[in-house]
Design a binder for these strands. Structure first.
Length: 478
RNA sequence: CGGGGUAUAGCACAGUUGGCUAGUGCGCUCGGUUUGGGACCGAGAGGCCGCAGGUUCGAGUCCUGCUACCCCGACCA
């Protein structure tokens, strides 16, 4: 099997090697689109299940809307159309005939959903309306990379409508916190959260909140977004309701989403020179058993011991779920081959069991997060597993958190900023709030404001040295 | 959209100044030996040489055109 390029040699190549060797996805014959393979899709399914539970716990119901959006819908909200129209795929023919009105393949579903919202919402009693859909999205990007940016991708989009701005604020913040918690609990991803600048916000939103992770090459990656859409869409789509005083009001709306990019984020945040390292909560296989034997007798003993472990594991739970344990009993592969294969695929824990171990009544546990090997008595192994899973999950988070902290620094002037930017990472500084400075910084350094953290008149703008209005996080981004 | 690259077996590639039967490694199938960090031997199967034209006695190789994908940048989750 092929070797993976070292991260230090060429991170981008390492990334593509890892996607391929871990069998997450293949290129398809359609430009910018990928085939998500079983190993990659299983990660998506576990991720999806975990997040879906949190979404439902917030009282949001799942729905499904068409992937085709009439052109006139897209055109209804001015900022929105300007933001998205250039990157849309458009269907002009159907059933062999030219369509009277072209259909846009959804680049996001605000417009098609909100046309329907105007029918669903009549009274304040219909509010809040909270729905979510798991769907595919198409955006004709010029530059694509598997999982990080693809022409078609999978995502979840939540859409809510409320009576007041305060409620919409609360919902946008709730979704943001949900993502942050989910990122930590399931994906072991530490993220920074905050607002986007006006320049970076979602087309048509009042403001955009986001989660930002830091990849191991020092680049920022937006992992999730949550928008307070204000009343702009309500205005364009006529989403009005009668309040308690029988007066017509426009709703306040939010939308929020995460995509298959989260898988890309897991790769670039946790991956190492041996390939993928998966957080146990989303790993398709959490524990892989690798038997080692020479004779038929050895094999019988070893497989027998594994069957007992399997039985024991099937009776316990971790985070209220059955533990995903498999035994790699392929006879034609050597143990060494299997070790490498499952390491590159990111399996969190491996159990090795050979004749020597069997004689000693023990087995060897090998952690993917640290590489640490440990002898454990066969009688104790099942019991030890839940804690080890938890250790790996938090261990990956802690490692990533440490990396993020070590690669976040405060800068005060532009020289220092440019210098530190070379090394990568998040840079915190003051900002006067002008889009001109933001633009200049991007033109000159390719760094963008990832997050506007807080209002702060402490210090000076990193670019123009005028009085600072905000603390911001800057970085080069994916 | 600019720059670069590639297109030959499932994958990675080689194929000389055009030359007769299309090559190597990995993988695959069968048999045997192996198995504690990517095992080995033997025998096999597998090709519209991206597509369309052209030059030539003869084209994977030369010429023209096309198409597709990849990589690097600017636009973006």
């Amino acid at each position: 099997m092929a070797k993976i390029t070292k991260q230090s040699e060429d991170f981008s190549k390492w990334y593509l090697d890892t996607v391929k060797i871990a069998e997450l996805a293949d290129y398809s014959k359609v430009k910018g689109c990928m085939v998500i393979k079983p190993w990659g899709y299983a990660i998506w399914e576990h991720l999806q299940r975990g997040l879906d539970k949190k979404i439902k716990a917030a009282g949001v119901k799942n729905v499904y809307f068409p992937m085709f959006i009439p052109e006139s819908f897209i055109n209804r909200e001015k900022e929105h159309v300007e933001g998205f129209a250039p990157e849309c795929a458009i269907v002009t023919h159907g059933g062999g005939k030219k369509l009277a009105e072209p259909l846009y393949v959804r680049p996001t579903s605000e417009t098609i959903m909100y046309d329907t919202f105007s029918e669903w919402i009549q009274s304040y009693r219909d509010l809040p309306l909270k729905i979510n859909q798991w769907a595919n999205i198409v955006r004709w990007e010029m530059r694509t990379r598997p999982f990080l940016r693809t022409t078609e991708f999978l995502w979840q989009e939540g859409h809510t409508a409320h009576e007041t701005k305060e409620e919409a604020d609360a919902e946008a913040n709730r979704a943001l916190k949900m993502y942050k918690d989910f990122d930590r609990e399931f994906l072991a991803l530490p993220v920074l959260t905050g607002k986007k600048s006006e320049k970076e916000k979602f087309a048509g939103a009042l403001y955009t909140l986001c989660t930002e992770a830091l990849a191991r090459d020092g680049k920022a990656i937006q992992a999730g977004t949550s928008h307070n859409l204000g009343q702009g869409f309500a205005e364009s789509f006529g989403i009005n309701f009668l309040d308690k005083n029988n007066e017509s009001q426009k709703v306040w709306q939010t939308s929020w989403g995460v995509s298959t990019r989260l898988i890309g984020t897991i790769i670039v945040v946790h991956g190492d020179d041996n390939g993928l390292r998966l957080p146990p909560r989303v790993a398709p296989v959490q524990i892989m058993g690798v038997p080692i034997y020479r004779s038929d007798d050895d094999k019988a003993n070893v497989m027998g011991a594994f069957e007992k472990i399997k039985e024991g594991i099937s009776k316990i739970k971790w985070n209220d779920e059955e533990i995903r344990f498999e035994i790699d009993d392929r006879d034609e592969m050597s143990p060494g081959y299997k070790f490498n294969e499952w390491e590159s695929k990111g399996v969190p824990l491996r159990i090795e069991l050979g004749p020597k171990d069997f004689e000693n009544g023990s087995c060897v546990l090998v952690r993917r997060d640290t590489g640490e090997k440990q002898n454990v008595k066969l009688s104790d192994v099942v019991e030890a597993i839940p804690d080890i899973m938890t250790d790996i999950q938090t261990g990956l988070y802690d490692q990533a958190k440490k990396f993020q902290e070590e690669n976040t620094s405060d800068v005060t002037d532009y020289q220092e900023f440019k210098q530190k930017l070379e090394e990568g990472g998040f840079l915190r500084s003051g900002w006067c709030g002008s889009e001109k400075c933001e633009q200049k910084i991007q033109e000159e350094t390719k760094a963008t404001i990832r997050i506007v953290e807080s209002k702060s008149d402490d210090g000076e703008c990193v670019y123009c040295a005028e009085k600072s209005q905000h603390k911001v996080i800057l970085a080069k981004a994916y």
